[in-house]
Lab assay of single mutants.
Amino acid sequence: CHSECLGNCSQPDDPTKCVACRNFYLDGRCVETCPPPYYHFQDWRCVNFSFCQDLHHKCKNSRRQGCHQYVIHNNKCIPECPSGYTMNSSNLLCTPCLGPCPKVCHLLEGEKTIDSVTSAQELRGCTVINGSLIINIRGGNNLAAELEANLGLIEEISGYLKIRRSYALVSLSFFRKLRLIRGETLEIGNYSFYALDNQNLRQLWDWSKHNLTITQGKLFFHYNPKLCLSEIHKMEEVSGTKGRQERNDIALKTNGDQASCENELLKFSYIRTSFDKILLRWEPYWPPDFRDLLGFMLFYKEAPYQNVTEFDGQDACGSNSWTVVDIDPPLRSNDPKSQNHPGWLMRGLKPWTQYAIFVKTLVTFSDERRTYGAKSDIIYVQTDATNPSVPLDPISVSNSSSQIILKWKPPSDPNGNITHYLVFWERQAEDSELFELDYCLKGLKLPSRTWSPPFESEDSQKHNQSEYEDSAGECCSCPKTDSQILKELEESSFRKTFEDYLHNVVFVPRKT
């Protein structure tokens, strides 16, 4: 048989008469490798580009789960590009990614509803959504962080984005990388972005840091009482949809009607710091009717980097990364020049730590249904340095008659930039024990000054392991946590139920 035959053949030295091919099969003959313009397919066939392209389009058009959109890589027609490569849609070739590779997620039936953290986790790592997304989240724990972890990498949506009755959302900033909504599939009414009845939605994105392009379709905003109209108009300008909307697409009466839409800028007039305090004062603000001013709200939190936005980490279910302080308005003076500047002394802060701070007014709604208010920009203030805590785990070892090696770990709280350490030492008198000992005694162990690591005695271990207080009263049991108490109650309830079950099964009433 021919060298490319495997198993047997019907005619000697003829690659077209093989029972099976050793390498690849091409047009009725066995070959060692697939010549151009053919590609290896499933490690035994040679196919042309049209064959591989037909497989790709067949799966793409069917949208069946589990099928493969075949691509070409290293002269092979394979189910998908290997790690580190992405497909070129024009020629199906796998090309190296520039940075992290995109991950295209194809949605069944063309859309997916995100109504819980669990459903959001199914899209973790996706960068391109081939379909439409509907966000409908009523509640949950730590929602802002969970949504950002699972949806934060999405850069492109081919269909539309719909935010509907998501009472738990305060902001859409968890879509931190969303840059493009194509609108290839539109919501009824030709809408590519749809926001309806979101009672706590206050911000779409921080438009000073976020760009969003909507290729096709219109915007729809109705019944978002805490979303200011200025935020919607800003989205029109940034996304390129200005002029597409009709009169009733953006409701003037049901958007922002319960919001404090600040239209003035508060400026800080005085800032002073110490290692654990920050004193702030800002310019006074009074609405047209000074009785509408209820006070100020001061927001602050630790910020290692200057990239904080107002609604980071917030949701309507209680999660809030900001510390909020309510401040009463100052006494009002008739003389504008003698107006008191409101302020606040922030206490209990960490030394040498940068804080993000902003302040906003708290006002009631005027009778004319106009909203007044003022808010400052987010500023960054760093507390002063102070003395560091003591170095940890000092170790001293003498390696000769004239040297001592000293080692330690950095302090747990540096409280500033540590530039150097101060080492103090003092000579001590020799131990009298060394002169009084009889060095001729056998088995004498000389006193040693070398360091030995501390260890816990058996008594201390027994005390720590004991669940009861000892007789001397030195140790006591740790208080039980809520989960331990709940577990004990469940076990007790189970024992009672099981005992009742045994009584009912074992003891049967005697027939009379």
Rank of each mutant, 00 (worst) to 15 (best):
I395K: 14
L331P: 05
K267N: 04
I357N: 00
C228M: 04
Y380F: 11
K177F: 07
M346S: 04
P351I: 09
K350L: 09
K209D: 02
D206M: 06
S402W: 05
Q121E: 05
K360M: 08
F358D: 01
E109H: 11
P225V: 13
A374W: 15
N224S: 06
N136V: 11
R347G: 14
S321F: 10
P329E: 07
R369L: 08
K234M: 04
S260V: 12
L227P: 00
E122G: 15
L266R: 00
K350S: 08
S208V: 06
I188A: 14
L229Y: 06
L279I: 11
I181F: 01
L252P: 13
P336S: 08
S158P: 00
N190V: 07
G125A: 07
W286C: 13
S376G: 02
G131V: 00
T127N: 12
R165V: 09
F299G: 06
K409L: 12
K253V: 10
Q199V: 14
S208A: 05
Q339H: 08
I154C: 05
W286Y: 06
C261P: 01
L279H: 13
E262M: 11
L147P: 01
K337N: 15
D367Y: 15
Q382L: 09
N198D: 01
L133D: 00
S402V: 06
Q199C: 05
E262C: 14
W205P: 01
V363S: 07
G348H: 10
L227W: 00
G159W: 01
W207I: 04
N255S: 08
K409P: 03
K226G: 06
S321T: 11
S389I: 03
I250D: 05
Y300V: 08
W207E: 02
S401E: 11
N211L: 08
L161P: 01
W322S: 01
F175N: 00
E368I: 11
A374F: 10
R176V: 10
R244Q: 14
I134D: 12
L178S: 00
K409I: 15
L151S: 01
A168K: 00
Q199R: 11
V170G: 15
L161C: 13
N263K: 10
S119D: 11
N130G: 14
G159T: 01
L280Q: 00
L219E: 02
Y300Q: 14
D249H: 03
Q121F: 09
Q245G: 10
I379S: 03
I271K: 15
P351N: 03
G125W: 05
L219A: 05
L265V: 13
A120N: 01
Q121L: 08
K209C: 14
L186C: 15
V238F: 07
G189L: 11
I271D: 01
F275R: 02
R369T: 07
K209A: 10
W322Q: 02
E264T: 13
L362H: 15
P411H: 01
I232V: 05
K360Y: 04
A374D: 05
E156L: 07
R281K: 13
D249E: 15
Y191L: 04
R138N: 04
T383E: 00
Y194F: 14
S158H: 01
I188M: 15
L252C: 13
Q258N: 04
W286A: 03
K162T: 08
W205K: 05
F299W: 14
S338G: 05
R291I: 10
P351M: 07
Y223A: 08
P391A: 01
K218T: 15
P329M: 12
H222E: 15
R165F: 13
L169H: 03
S173Q: 07
V238C: 12
Q199E: 14
S132V: 01
L229D: 07
S400W: 06
N307G: 10
L345A: 03
S171Q: 11
I137N: 15
V128M: 03
L279K: 15
E246P: 14
Y372V: 03
P288R: 14
R247M: 10
R281W: 13
L349W: 00
N248E: 15
A149W: 12
E187V: 06
Q403G: 07
V359E: 00
Y191N: 07
K253H: 06
S239E: 04
W286S: 09
L293G: 03
S338K: 15
E122A: 14
D115G: 14
D206H: 05
P351Q: 11
A374Y: 07
P329A: 11
L219I: 07
I134A: 06
I163K: 05
L298Y: 01
S366H: 10
Y167F: 08
H233P: 02
N340S: 06
D384A: 14
K301F: 03
M235R: 00
K375V: 15
V325M: 10
T213F: 08
I163F: 14
E184A: 07
P304N: 01
S166M: 02
Y160P: 01
N334Q: 12
D335I: 13
S192M: 02
P351K: 04
Q306E: 12
K112Q: 14
K409Q: 14
T386L: 03
L204R: 00
L186V: 02
N263L: 08
E148R: 11
P391S: 01
T215P: 15
G348T: 13
T353K: 14
T185W: 05
R247F: 13
G152H: 08
I327S: 03
Y270I: 15
S116G: 04
D326P: 02
T353I: 14
L169T: 05
E246W: 03
Q245Y: 06
E237H: 12
M235A: 07
T118N: 04
L345P: 13
D115R: 05
W205I: 08
E122W: 11
G152S: 03
P351L: 02
F365P: 10
I327G: 02
K218C: 04
F268C: 04
R291N: 07
I327D: 01
N136H: 11
Q199K: 09
D328H: 04
G159A: 06
N307W: 13
P304M: 10
D289K: 04
K350R: 15
L349T: 04
S396W: 03
L265A: 13
C317R: 03
Q339V: 11
Q258Y: 05
S269V: 02
S173N: 12
E122F: 02
L169K: 00
P288I: 09
K267I: 14
V359M: 04
V363E: 01
Y355K: 00
Q314H: 15
S400K: 12
H222Y: 02
E302R: 06
W344F: 13
G217E: 00
T309I: 00
D335K: 09
H233G: 02
G139K: 04
C105T: 00
S398N: 07
R347Y: 07
K103N: 04
D326G: 02
L349M: 09
I114E: 00
F220M: 09
N200Y: 08
L143Q: 13
G217S: 02
P391H: 01
F175I: 13
S376R: 00
R179L: 10
S401N: 15
E246Y: 08
D292M: 12
L227F: 02
K267T: 08
T353H: 14
K218M: 06
D315R: 15
S402R: 04
L107R: 06
E262F: 06
K301Q: 07
E231T: 15
M297N: 15
K209Q: 15
G125Y: 15
P284K: 06
V104Y: 08
L107S: 09
E231Y: 01
L212S: 01
V325K: 05
A259E: 04
